[in-house]
């Protein structure tokens, strides 16, 4: 099974990298960019008997390793 996981900073957590990207875009002349938040995308290929099982295992992977849930949110998408 194929899955895609998005890991993003929680709202309210300052994202210095996203801010730097936003500044760079402004400096390049891309006007009207009010915010940039940087995150991670992980494509995962896994064995699973069902979509429910796959999603449950992926969520566990996110909680235990792929995301730092103190500062990050994650979203699991089965493709």
């Amino acid at each position: 099974m194929q899955a895609r996981i998005y890991v993003t900073l929680k709202q309210g957590v300052l994202d210095p990298q996203g801010e730097a990207v936003r500044h760079a875009l402004g400096a390049m002349g891309f006007d009207g960019v009010h915010g940039v938040r940087q995150g991670k995308l992980l494509d995962v290929e896994l064995d699973a008997a069902s979509r429910d099982e796959a999603e449950a295992r992926l969520r566990e992977m996110c909680e235990k390793l792929l995301a730092n849930t103190v500062i990050e949110d994650f979203r699991v998408e089965l493709l």
């Binding site: 210095p16 730092n68 103190v70």
Partner: peptide, 16 residues
């Protein structure tokens, strides 16, 4: 912190 022995998180330096 990642092992859960201490609380909080360590992020990229604010000055990058």
């Amino acid at each position: 912190i990642e092992a859960g022995l201490l609380p909080g998180a360590l992020m990229r330096n604010a000055g990058l």
